[in-house]
Computed example of a mutant assay.
Amino acid sequence: MIHWDAHACLPIHPQASFAPIDALRAYGVNYVSVNVGADMNPVSQVMAVIAGFRATIAASPERYLLASSVADIRKAAAQEKIAVSFDLEGALPLMDSPEMVALYHQLGVRQIHFAYNRNNNVADGCHDMERGLTPLGRRMVRAVNDAGMLMDCSHSGRRSSLDIMEASDQPVIFSHANPLALAEHGRNVSDEQIRACAATGGVVCVSGLSFFLGSDNPTADDVARHAAYIAGLVGVEHAGIGLDICFREEGLDDTPSGDFDPSYWWPASAGYDMEQPPSFTPVETWKLLPAALEKTGMSKEEAALVMGGNMMRVAQQVWKA
C-alpha cells in the first residue's frame, strides 16, 4: 500500500529544512509532491529552490529519493525512504513559453497548475474574472501532456478548469481541492468540476486546510468526510489526499522579491483573513486517515485507493520514465 500526499509546502527557500518531509515519512507517507513556487515567485527564486531541494535530497540518499516514475516510488517504499518530486502552482514561472515545461520536468517537476488564484496569460485563477483557457493555455496543456507531467487544476477558475479537462488527452487532477457542496469557499470545486475531472480518469485530492474543510480545527474525520463525498459523487477511484500542509520555519524568510501584496493573492473578498491565517490538519492525520475513511463506510481496500492507490494509477499512466 502506497500513501501519496499530492501537495505539501515547505518554505520557498533553498535552505528550507526537510524535517517536515521526515515527519511525513514517519507517519507512513511514501510519496509527497513538494511545491517549489507559485505565480508570485520570480523564476530566479523558483530555480534556486529547485537547486536547493535537489541538493538536500542528493545529500541524504538513505532518506529521500527524487522520483521520476512510479517504479521509483515503489523502490523508495521498499527501502523505507520517502519519494519526492516537485510541483509548480501557476504558469508565470513558464514565462509564456511552452518549452519551459520540458525543462522543469527535467529538473524534477511532475505536476503543475496554470493559475494561482489570479488570472495570467495562460488561464484564470479561482478568485478573478472568468475568461477561460487562452490559446496559449491550450498550447501549454499539450506541452504538459507531451512532457508526461500531471495536469493540475487546483487554484484555477471554474471555466478554465473545465477547458483544461476538455483539452487534455491525459487524466487531470486537483491535487488539493475540496467539494464546494460541503464548504462554501471560492477555492473549492463544484460537482460539475468534480464530474469533469473524473471523466478524464483523474483524481480530486482533499486538502486539510481549515478554510476549505469548513472546520476551524480540522481533523482526519473532516478530511475523510470530504473524500467520501467525492467517492459518493463519482466513485471511490477518483478520490485522493493532498493535505496541503504549509510548513513554516523560524528565521527563514521566503517572501517573494518585488512588489508582493499578499492581499492580492488571498483577497478578503474571497474569504481570507490575513490577521487569522488558516489552520491545517496535523501530519499525524496520515496515521488516523485509514480508520476515519472506514468510518464513512469505505472498505479497507477502498480506503487504500484514496490514500494513494488512485494517484499511483494516474501517475502510472501520465508520467514518462
Rank of each mutant, 00 (worst) to 15 (best):
L103F: 13
Q111L: 08
Q111Y: 08
H113N: 13
F114M: 13
A115L: 13
N117V: 06
R118E: 01
R118Q: 12
V122F: 05
G125W: 10
H127I: 10
E130G: 11
L136I: 13
L136F: 13
G137A: 01
R139E: 07
M140L: 07
M140C: 00
R142P: 05
A143S: 10
V144R: 02
A147R: 14
G148Q: 01
G148N: 06
L150W: 11
D152M: 08
C153G: 12
S156F: 06
R158D: 14
I164W: 08
I164H: 05
M165H: 05
S168N: 05
Q170L: 14
Q170V: 07
V172G: 00
V172A: 04
F174Q: 11
S175K: 15
H176V: 00
N178G: 04
P179M: 09
L180Q: 12
H185P: 06
H185N: 03
R187S: 02
V189I: 15
S190M: 13
D191R: 14
D191C: 00
D191N: 10
Q193V: 15
Q193L: 14
R195N: 12
R195W: 07
G202T: 11
G202V: 15
V206W: 03
F212H: 15
S215F: 01
S215G: 10
N217Y: 10
T219V: 08
A220L: 03
D222P: 14
V223P: 14
A228S: 12
Y229H: 13
